[in-house]
């Protein structure tokens, strides 16, 4: 039995908007074990980023967070105060954002910011902090780390900045790293390098890693387990192998059919599509959120809320009342696509 690092149970985030209450996250549950990489995947507006911010208690002030359980490394995060939470952030759980330039302070050197990250949370001397910072900079592949130490964030390229952010996240030896689209702003070759590095460091330091992304390629290559979100809900969760080889939810199947894969999709052939648009999350709703865009939706889908049920594989859960019949009903769209 591996050590449980993060437990999120029935997390909800509500945002007041002029038209009412926006239920951005509606009862999301997942967990992360030590050494695991959990990918939260979904399209814009599905609530994946708010889920991460809610875990770190970094939500905008007007947002309201509720949850049945929110535990990080055995500590209940719902009842602790602001100061205790600030101690946890950085020391126990670190976050990496999409655009490193906004999370690095342009007025301080890289070295200074790395040292501060450690000095704020533990009783070490500045010399020790510096030694660890240099070690980590080298570890994240920054050559001539000692000279980079005196540089300011704007003097680094996007890829190097993201490496610095990873080094900073590792300074206090956190048990959990949350990375929100860490490679979306980067070039493809740099993206592969950064993800390679993240995967390697995650194994080496045995942290739990939560990676939030919209890129199914990234998910497939790096995830131990996958959480697929749609319109504020988890619609499917399971191991990467199960999700990609036997996707059970029509939305997951649709998403996979949408992306061109060299060698698999036929050149020029129509790609799969998901018709329609994401429903508005303002106000109360009944039934499956995906029903309006789903080819397989029946009246039962629209009349009652759908719960997560076990699919074929162990630990594979899906929020669809027809998931068992789907494989027999139709192949995924790619196969039926006309040339």
């Amino acid at each position: 039995m591996s050590e449980r690092i993060l437990t999120v149970d029935n997390l909800r985030v509500d945002l007041p908007v002029p038209a009412g209450t926006l239920h951005a996250v509606q009862g999301v549950s997942f967990h992360v074990d030590r050494g695991e990489t959990v990918c939260i995947v979904g399209e814009s507006g599905c609530g994946k980023t708010l889920t991460a911010l809610a875990v770190m208690d970094l939500l905008p002030a007007r947002a309201r967070r509720t949850a049945q359980r929110l535990e990080l490394a055995g500590r209940d995060m719902l009842s602790i105060g602001e100061r205790a939470m600030a101690d946890i952030r950085g020391a126990r759980a670190a976050m990496i954002f999409q655009e490193p330039m906004t999370s690095l302070n342009p007025a301080y050197t890289i070295g200074n910011q790395l040292e501060e990250a450690l000095l704020r949370h533990s009783r070490v001397s500045r010399r020790q902090a510096r030694a660890r910072a240099v070690y980590l900079l080298e570890r994240v592949g920054i050559t001539a780390a000692a000279s980079r130490f005196k540089q300011y964030p704007h003097q680094l390229s996007g890829g190097l900045r993201q490496r610095v952010m990873i080094a900073m996240a590792l300074m206090c030896g956190p048990s959990l790293i949350l990375a929100d689209e860490p490679t979306t702003a980067l070039d493809v070759t740099i993206q592969a390098q950064i993800l390679h590095l993240l995967a390697e460091l995650q194994r080496e330091f045995a942290t739990g890693l939560v990676l939030i992304t919209h890129d199914l390629g990234v998910v497939a290559r790096i995830a131990t387990r996958v959480v697929v979100m749609y319109a504020g809900e988890v619609v499917e969760t399971g191991t990467a192998a199960a999700i990609f080889s036997r996707p059970a939810h029509p939305y997951t199947r649709g998403l996979i059919a949408c992306i061109p894969v060299p060698g698999r999709t036929r050149r020029g052939a129509a790609l799969g599509t998901i018709p329609g648009m994401v429903p508005s999350l303002v106000g109360k709703s009944i039934g499956c959120h995906f029903a309006s865009r789903c080819d397989y939706a029946i009246d039962a889908c629209r009349s009652a809320d759908v719960t997560l049920e076990a699919a074929r594989d162990a630990g594979h859960l899906v929020r669809c009342i027809r998931h068992a019949e789907l494989p027999a009903l139709a192949p995924t769209r790619v196969a039926e696509a006309a040339p």
Binding site: P279, G287, H289, A291, S292
Partner: peptide, 8 residues
Amino acid sequence: RAGIPTAA
């Protein structure tokens, strides 16, 4: 559709 008005 399930009583949810879609953005469309």
